[in-house]
Amino acid sequence: MRRPYIVQILMTPAIVLHGITKTYGALTAVDDFSLEVERGAIFALLGPNGAGKTTLIRVLTTLLRPTAGDAMVEGRSVLTEGREVRRLIGVVPQENNLDRYLTARENLVLHARMHGMRPAEYNRVIDELLELTGLGGRQHDFPDTYSGGMQRRLVVARALVHHPRVLFLDEPTTGLDPQSRRAVWDYIQTLRARMTIFLTTHYMDEADTLCDRIVIMDHGRPLVDGSAAQLKEALAHSHLYEVEVRRDADRYETVLRGLPFVESAERSGNLFRLALTGEEALKPLMDAIGSADIRKICLREPSLEDVFIELTGKKVRE
């Protein structure tokens, strides 16, 4: 059955990747990556340093030609309809790229002009955005007199001047204080009704509470895909417990690490975070410590960070 055109439009996902691959010489930064992101979602791409997140965003924003594969943004190919794609997207790059020879306002105006907006149109939007991002009072200053958080907010504002349908944010909150992070997030939240948001972040709590869907990637490939709850649920079978002892923590550390049914043990003070092989390990665990010395024992809900570490390992990346 053929669907009416308008329905087809509404049903096309905002972003589609077909087998995107990007190699730099011998290094494969993104490896045969396929994905669909539905309209109106806040989508987070997580992964350790060097996983390929920025590379993927650069392909989607037409800055980088993929070695193989194609991607669609709002149904337009990044390979053959780059200009159309760029009309529809807003981009906040990982590194701020403001023009330090232009004032904050002039930065926004230049952006609007390149989008073909007229002064009557852009002045109103720019006033509004400067107000919302709390930069109105400093709009005639140069960006290098701004704090890092203010610069970041200005970059976000710039990406929104032309009312994009898809917003790409590469680590929008890295380096911000909790207040600025919150301000940026509150602002992003108000946008969700109007656009699809594709972001990367290293803050697990942000992804957990604010994003509808999460993909964790490493070495250029996706590892898992789902909502925060689904990802955590998938890890729930691995038995995570917290055990607090009253005394002799040093001795118990050696004991716990020696037990065959303890897969891993992390210690902070008197508190141990244990991953056990299964529920049947609980009884021997209590025996090993001795009930008099146990202050507390409880099941621990896995956090998104647990999922992340579980999937991508503990080793620090180069």
Binding site: E84, P93, D99, M114
Partner: peptide
């Protein structure tokens, strides 16, 4: 230095 060329390049110009 400024990477402003990249900002130009994500706008609908050639």
């Amino acid at each position: 230095v400024q990477h402003t060329i990249e900002e130009y390049r994500v706008n609908p110009i050639t």
